[in-house]
């Protein structure tokens, strides 16, 4: 006779990305507690009436915005300031990209020594961590109101973004072509020009256009803190409660931003 042994029943559990199920639930609970704390922090003391009233004000706001202002004088001012924003983005892209080139090579692990690498990486993370408006507000206090402060702020932001992405491309280059240029007896500079540069030019152009597109967006709002461009006009109209003019300005900004995005997409498709 065969004794029937009771097999312990085991059910299949879906494996988890966390170490085990206890860790998983621990993280879920912690996350839920954090979110609840945040919700309480934002919503404590906010009654439902504030929402409903707010929506009411929203309707009133839309009514005062419509129809957008279209008087010739106002539109000329609007166009003028939009042009200023676009010009700021152009100059800031040129300056930012120029500064980015040495930083990008410095941040490529395969080409430089350790200290230079760390220094370049530090520049990149600081530039990326601080929002453009924070740089702008400080630049405005240092250089006064106007496009110069805006250009400095946008160039500063460009360096972090551009160097980071370009350095990744520099790190990915084919070392074989560098070696083959070197083996012809080329100097270090010649190796750079004929071995490294041709490999990154297409990406370089694509990234420049991409960043230009982002800079157009940035230059449209940076005037909110007084750093030149259309944002300054927006802030003036806003603080005077001229919401019909605000509407025209916003439409102008959206138009330019969408146009820039389109141009950037077309150029990038052609280059890559």
């Amino acid at each position: 006779m065969v004794a029937e042994t009771e097999q312990p029943r085991s059910t299949w559990h879906r494996p988890t990305t966390f170490y085990d199920h206890r860790v998983k639930w621990g993280i879920y609970v912690a996350l839920a507690a954090f979110l609840a704390w945040s919700l309480w922090g934002i919503l404590a003391g906010v009654g439902l009436s504030r929402f409903t009233e707010g929506l009411g004000y929203g309707v009133t706001l839309l009514q005062t915005m419509y129809p957008p202002r279209t008087e010739a004088g106002d539109l000329v001012r609007l166009g003028d300031r939009l042009l200023e924003s676009v010009a700021m983005a152009m100059v800031a892209t040129a300056i930012g990209v120029t500064i980015s080139i040495p930083v990008a090579f410095g941040a490529a692990q395969n080409l430089v020594s350790r200290p230079i690498y760390l220094l370049s990486r530090a520049i990149i993370s600081i530039s990326r961590a601080i929002d453009g408006l924070i740089v702008a507000i400080i630049a405005v206090m240092a250089f006064g109101f106007g496009p110069l402060a805006g250009i400095i702020a946008i160039s500063f932001k460009t360096v972090g973004f551009f160097s980071k992405l370009l350095s990744e491309d520099v790190e990915d280059i084919n070392m074989g072509s560098i070696e083959s240029v070197e083996s012809t007896g080329a100097s270090r500079f010649q190796t750079l020009v004929y071995g490294v540069v041709p490999q990154i030019v297409p990406r370089f152009v694509g990234l420049t256009v991409y960043r230009w597109d982002i800079n157009i967006r940035a230059s449209a709002i940076i005037g909110i803190v007084g750093a030149g461009g259309i944002g300054q006009l927006l802030m003036t109209a806003y603080s005077r409660y001229e919401f019909d003019y605000v509407a025209s300005i916003l439409l102008g900004i959206i138009l330019v931003v969408l146009l820039a995005e389109y141009v950037s997409a077309v150029v990038r498709r052609r280059v890559q």
């Binding site: 010009a87 700021m88 100059v91 892209t93």
Partner: peptide
């Protein structure tokens, strides 16, 4: 040219 024109326009 566009960058230089922008530079001029902003009177930098």
């Amino acid at each position: 040219i566009v960058v230089l024109a922008s530079w001029q326009y902003l009177e930098l």
